[in-house]
Simulated scan of single mutants.
Amino acid sequence: MLSSDKIARINELSKKSKSIGLTLEEAKEQTSLRKEYLETFRSSMKNTIENVTVIDPEGNDVTPEKVKAIKEKKFLN
């Protein structure tokens, strides 16, 4: 997870961008922080999806085969 300081900085730069604009250094920092945030988010989401089991109302496991294969691969390693 991204630190709260970095998230606060992302928000600060976003507000400044909308109000008075950013310097070149600030724009580069904003791009870098956003990239880091997205990488962290995607990694977390991927981990969540790969560890989910889908059960239908009748109690049957209807987890997609692709997810089951990923789980098996992780279990074997």
Rank of each mutant, 00 (worst) to 15 (best):
S4M: 14
F75D: 03
I10T: 07
S14G: 12
I55A: 07
D56N: 15
V67C: 08
N11A: 08
L22G: 00
L76T: 05
V67I: 15
S44A: 02
L24I: 05
E72Q: 04
E50K: 15
N47A: 02
K71F: 12
K66A: 02
T31Y: 13
L24V: 10
K6T: 07
Q30D: 04
F41H: 10
T48M: 15
L13V: 09
R9I: 02
K6F: 06
L22D: 02
T63C: 00
I55P: 14
I49E: 09
E29W: 10
T40A: 01
K73M: 07
T31E: 12
L2T: 12
T53F: 01
V54Y: 03
T48Y: 15
K16E: 05
V62M: 00
G21S: 07
N77F: 08
N47W: 02
D56W: 06
N11E: 05
I20V: 13
N11R: 08
V62D: 00
R9H: 08
K73F: 11
L22C: 00
K74P: 10
N77Y: 15
N51A: 08
K68R: 14
F75A: 08
E26W: 07
E72L: 00
T23K: 09
D61A: 07
M45T: 09
F41V: 10
T31R: 13
L76M: 00
V62E: 02
T48N: 14
